[in-house]
Design a protein around this nucleic acid. Sequence first.
DNA 1: GAGGTTGCTATTTTT
DNA 2: TAGCAACCTC
Length: 882
Amino acid sequence: MSSYNEDDAFEAAARVPLSQRAMQGAMADRPAPYLDDLNPEQRRAAETLDGPVLMLAGAGTGKTKALTTRIAHLLNTGTALPNQILAVTFTNKAAREMKDRVGRHLGGPAEGMPWMGTFHSICVKLLRRHAELIPIRAQASDDVLDEGDSAAQPAAVHLKNTFTILDTDDQIRLLKQLITAEGLDEKRWPARALAGVIDNWKNRAWTPEAVPAAESSAFNDRGVKLYAAYQRRLIELNAVDFGDLLLHVVSIFQNHEDVLAQYQRWFRYILVDEYQDTNVAQYLWLRLLAAKHRNICCVGDDDQSIYGWRGAEVGNILRFEKDFPGAAVIRLEQNYRSTPHILAAASAVIAGNKGRLGKELWTEAEEGEKVRLMGHWDGEEEARWVGEEIEDARAGRGRYRDRDNPRSETFQQELDRRAKQGLGRVTRQEFVRWAFESGTAFSDFKVQKLLKILLRDDPKAENMYKALLASPVDKYSYNEIVILVRASHQMRAFEDRFLTIGLPYRVIGGPRFYERLEIRDAMAYFRLAVSPDDSLAFERIVNTPKRGLGNVAQQKIQTTARANGVSLVEGARILLESGGIGGKGAKELRALIDGIGRWHGAVLDDRTSHIELAEVILDESGYTTHWQNDKSPDAPGRLENLKELVKALENFDNLQGFLEHVALIMDNDREEAEDKVTIMTLHGAKGLEFPAVFLPGWEDGLFPSQRSMDESGVKGLEEERRLAYVGITRAEEICTITFAANRRVYGQWQSQMPSRFVDELPEDHVEVLTAPGLYGGGYGAAAPSAAVEERASKADVYSSPGWKRMQARSQSGPSRAASMVIDAKAVSKFTAGERIFSQKFGYGTILGVENDTLDVEFDKAGAKKVKAGFVVAAERADDVPF
DNA sequence: GAGGTTGCTATTTTT
DNA sequence: TAGCAACCTC
């Protein structure tokens, strides 16, 4: 089992479906028509099969197309067998899409490509083959948990191929124990923080021994020691965490030349998606594997590297040509997504970054709308305005009235044509063909829904189709609109607003299905049924539902298990037999342990279906009842989730397979058919595109995030700028950027400066919507049409520092607009004790000054923190027009 | 073991 | 401000 068997190669080759092998033969010496779909650069990327290739693919330039065609080409020319291609992605979604698209090229499902998947899923496969090459670390004399503990599960000398993959909860629980054992105050030194430190180290491929001395002060000087103890505990428990999946495999490659050599020979062609997101461990992993054939093709965009904070190294992509001398560098620069204005805006912003590989996006698309910029008084108004814009956009009202939406047009033409012909019978084929030909018609979701129904031969289909034709044409459907925020707390304002006006929305990003409490509990039961030795799972559910097994009882179980060097379940059994536990707890514990034994038996003998078994487990353990008796409002939802969990089992052959899948999936993207506006973070939007994009909250401190700049300086700022780039380039037709002058931050009202990225937007490609003098129009922004405001003409608007200046607003109404300009830099003018006046809060006394932020006790509004730029000395209050 | 109270903290997140 | 986790009390 352990070492890689050359026979596998033959065996695997033999498993390639016949059709594919036939195709290889057939296609080998024929021209490849699928290449004609590509532009010259894409084509070069798909055809340069040998040697290192770096594909620099800007946003929306069709990199997936190039990548999947490349794979198809590898196969069709007979250059590689499906199992000789290693294709890695970061997300399951990306892997799935790649599989689908390669399959489409080949005219059948891309089975027989066993090495196409995420870094993690591929590593699990590799690690299951070679688990025993990961030894337990020799015990250093000063190790944590030295006394007594060393006996725990002593059988473990190395990892076994049945290892479990821990989720974050388990990880934290384990670390907590270690921290406490080390005698650290868990409050001052929280397990979460340690998990972060360790994760960081693992991202850099540092084993405990390899952590450099410079890091030794981490976590109160105990970081490394705890890390070592943690790794040892994991192997004792026959478990790995996510970081280990890569770290262990890299260690194996580094320490076992023979194993590495086998895989180097094996993976003749390597493809990597989103290369700019790789961390050091992934980088080493790839470099080791590619060392022999050097047929590695990395696809990425340095301008879209936004995961530096979790270990991604932009350096990897910047260094590619050095790592692989003679590499072909191919730039995909033709953009198929956005209008020229949008691209120009994005390019101008990203140009502010240094050390880029450099790309120039261009498009053949028609001009379209300029990027729109709008300032607001506060966050609430911003949300209100965005809500109105969305309704306008959908209904084709106001500004949107005359907008040509090519989608709508296509549909309208179809309507006219049918009207002229007098709507005959709609056949299924006819509709399907029309839907495909017209692309996503006026409202994606309706068409999709209809398609689904038609495909199922529902008799209602024709009526629905008629209803569709009779309904008004949307300029934009909700599904085509997205709001992208920097931080999830910004979502709230929009949710509140949309709820009150009844605008349908969906939030992407919340807690994932498999991370929910009830799902994790249920999974722990399943884990125990599969392997009763899973002590962490046992720990999780001993007393859930309540079995009268409190801290004391649990401690006893732990001690017994350790003393005997057995798992917790076994320890509990011994404890029961010795009568070390009594009363209600004993009875319940007995029932639980018997249950686990029984369930495990059922898993082994395979006579009950795993679905039935899952239900039995949840029933007999009392877990279902536990939630049925719970009166809290979310209990029904949790029961619902449990049902869904059981239902998800249908897609698997057994519990083991299911558990493996879930550990790696953490799936979030359950497609919804309803027409809703999407709200999500900028990070979550990478790789997606929408006809209309709203980018709210462009204020310094929020975006770019203050914390990011404080912690990582210029590097942090540049990553924020890339985030801005990602945001803008999501838009196909309309991109709207907004900011607010005031925002509540942790309950305190704070004045905000517009984001520095706003300054970086190129004036020629931006339309400023903010009306002069309007509430919230206080920034230098002025509508170009407002002739009155000659001084604040567009040129003026953009000439800093004018743009950065703020105009005081009139509180009495728009007609008496004020244009008093206060220099935001006039910080030093103020001192504690001084009387000041603020537009928003009135008169007050300064309590303290911190840079440009004043601590003020207002006469009426109480204590507030305000930016110096928003107040004037009290005696100058008369300068402010009313 | 439930329920109330206090205290603390406060991006981005995939696997 | 608000959401939570941990603590305290009965």
